[in-house]
Design a protein around this nucleic acid. Structure first.
Lengths: 139, 139
DNA sequence: GTAACTGCAAAATATTTGCATCCTT
DNA sequence: AAGGATGCAAATATTTTGCAGTTAC
């Protein structure tokens, strides 16, 4: 696992550091979206708040993670699954935000549908967030 | 115009105050989505920052405005066009965020399409934001 | 007159920046 | 060794809360 992460970082031209390994670990083991606060909590006092900000920013710029729009004011991040390159994200999947457990999941296999826009509007990318009850909370 | 707004407020059981009239004026004349900062700027120093927070919160609770999730993580608000009631929003339309002018528009006639979710996921509401270039900026 | 709304002050949170130090390559 | 990354301190920015004074009805 750690090897996989190291390779990933190298592939993006980033140096391998404690913090970056740590944050990526969280993303891989959590398998969902996380806020800055989630990461901070999970890191305990091992990681400086500022470092987390900078790490997330770097990861997003490089295309390792993407931010998920939400109506509740909290920025969430999740791993990019497809070929995201610096500055160009292709996370063309739907996100699901559970009203019960609060977790956000990437529905990797549900693509954001194209919509017909009014005359004159030129789309470049779309985002879709569905709220409701997730598979685990319905059980 | 002001009469229309007064009637609206009354209809929602809210008392008619300077601030509320003002904020609604902005929404009606702007015909787009606005952030808290937009409103504050537009109000100059006429309106207290805190009052704006509370006004927006009240309006959202009552179903007069709805918040729009966005990928750049700034909460935007726009008028509800359909029959939104307290706690129950039905702004089932797509939002368009222009990368050039930064304005967010409600595409009232473009409905958010239904998507087929994985087994176990129960949707309650959906949001969709398309980014790109708006009709005005393409001219 | 009463309940609701506002403004001010201040607390609580969240985010950004500068810089000296440490780590990766 | 050199450039990049981190940690700390502090500057900014954002949001929330309490309360006294004011306003709408």
């Amino acid at each position: 696992m750690e090897d996989k992460i190291r390779t990933l970082l190298k592939g993006y031209g980033l140096s391998i550091t404690e913090s970056r390994l740590g944050v990526l670990q969280f993303f891989y083991s959590n398998n969902g979206a996380m806020t800055h606060a989630d990461i901070e909590k999970q890191a305990g006092n091992k990681m400086d708040r500022v470092t987390i900000y900078r790490t997330l920013q770097t990861f997003e710029e490089k295309g390792i993670i993407h931010s998920i729009p939400s109506a509740d004011n909290m920025v969430r991040y999740a791993l990019c699954k497809e070929q995201c390159t610096a500055g160009h994200h292709h996370d063309n999947h739907v996100h699901f935000l559970c009203n019960t457990c609060g977790k956000t999941s990437c529905l990797d296999h549900v693509l954001v549908p194209k919509v017909k826009l009014p005359k004159g509007f030129l789309p470049s990318e779309s985002n879709m967030v569905v709220r409701g009850t997730c598979n685990l909370c319905r059980a």
